[in-house]
Simulated assay, not measured.
Amino acid sequence: MKRTTKLAFAIAALISLSGCFGRTPVDDGFRDTSVPLTVTTRGTAADLAGPWHMRAHFPGDRSLALVTFIENLNGAPAVEFLRSDCLLSGDCETSAEVWRSAPLGQNRYRLTNGSGDSFELWVIWVDEGFRTAAIGTPDGSYGWVLDRKPTEGEDRIIAAREILSFNGYDTLRMIQK
């Protein structure tokens, strides 16, 4: 076989194999939606209640610092997103946004804001002690690793990232806080 033919064959083989080594997100999301998305059967909404610190996220959620699941806000469950943005000057601004939460099934919710915008939020995985959670959306627009503490528990953070990867998320694009 000629050297150029061998080189062309090797390049073609590498191109073919490259698809086996990573998932490609669909529609510019962060998840390959051809991979089935799982949801944990562990726990209830009451187990999720309270504040969760953002430990890893995808680009676009840099300012999201805290996600709080609220069991009852004016008669309905809700989720509060606390954002913290800091300017180069050192001035920081914090804002909170509350979304109504409607259960779609165990550990699956439709969140809706006051403007009528909505999205689904799924609890993909949570550890036994409800300290760390992998949260995502079926369309792959969001994927988060949340934890009850802003530091520690690195083994659980790694496990949550692995679960997101198993569910089609491109965790190489995740940003760890």
Results as ranks from 00 to 15, higher is better:
Leu87His: 04
Arg23Leu: 12
Leu164Ser: 04
Trp144His: 14
Asp61Thr: 05
Ala65Trp: 02
Thr38Asn: 08
Pro25Gly: 09
Ala159Met: 12
Asp117Gln: 14
Gly129Phe: 04
Trp125Gln: 08
Asp28Ala: 14
Asp27Ala: 14
Leu87Gln: 09
Ile158Gly: 03
Pro25Phe: 06
Val126Cys: 06
Val39Lys: 05
Arg148Leu: 10
Asp47Arg: 12
Val35Lys: 09
Met1Arg: 06
Ser63Arg: 05
Ala56Asp: 05
Arg42Val: 13
Phe166Val: 07
Gly114Arg: 07
Leu164Pro: 00
His53Thr: 03
Phe9Gly: 02
Thr40Arg: 07
Thr5Met: 08
Asp117Val: 04
Ile15Asp: 01
Ile163Leu: 05
Ser18Trp: 03
Arg55Tyr: 11
Glu120Met: 02
Leu104Ile: 13
Ile157Trp: 08
Leu164Val: 06
Lys2Glu: 07
Ile158Thr: 13
Arg110Pro: 00
Trp99Lys: 07
Leu73Cys: 01
Arg156Ala: 15
Trp144Ala: 03
Arg156Pro: 03
Ala76Cys: 02
Thr112Ile: 10
Asp117Ile: 01
Ser63Leu: 02
Pro51Glu: 14
Ser165Ile: 01
Cys20Trp: 08
Ala134Glu: 05
Arg173Ser: 12
Val126Ser: 08
Arg148Cys: 11
Leu14Pro: 02
Ile15Tyr: 06
Ala78Glu: 07
Asp28Lys: 12
Met174Ala: 13
Thr137Arg: 15
Val79Ser: 01
Thr68Ile: 01
Phe166Asn: 07
Ala12Lys: 04
Ser118Tyr: 14
Leu146Ala: 09
Glu162Lys: 14
Asp117Pro: 02
Ala45Ser: 11
Glu71Ile: 01
Asn74Leu: 06
Asp32Thr: 01
Ala46Thr: 13
Val39Arg: 09
Leu146Met: 06
Asn72Gly: 08
Gly140Lys: 11
Gly140Cys: 11
Thr112Leu: 09
Arg156Cys: 02
Ser34Cys: 02
Gly19Arg: 03
Ile15Asn: 00
Asp91Gly: 00
Leu164Trp: 02
Gly140Trp: 14
Phe58Ser: 04
Pro138Ser: 10
Arg161Thr: 10
Asn74Gly: 02
Pro150Glu: 08
Glu162Gly: 12
Leu121Met: 15
Lys149Ile: 01
Ile158Glu: 09
Met174Ser: 11
Ala133Ile: 12
Thr151Pro: 01
Thr68Gly: 08
Gly136Glu: 03
Ala56Leu: 04
Ser84Pro: 00
Gly114Cys: 02
Trp99Tyr: 10
Pro25Cys: 08
Lys6Val: 13
Glu152Asp: 14
Arg110Asp: 02
Ala76Gly: 11
Thr38Asp: 15
Thr40Glu: 03
Pro103Asn: 06
Phe30Met: 09
Ser34Arg: 12
Arg42Ala: 12
Leu64Pro: 04
Leu48Asn: 10
Pro138Tyr: 05
Glu154Asn: 13
Pro150Arg: 10
Trp144Tyr: 15
Asp47Gly: 11
Leu66Ala: 01
Ser101Tyr: 02
Cys20Ile: 07
Gly116Leu: 09
Trp52His: 09
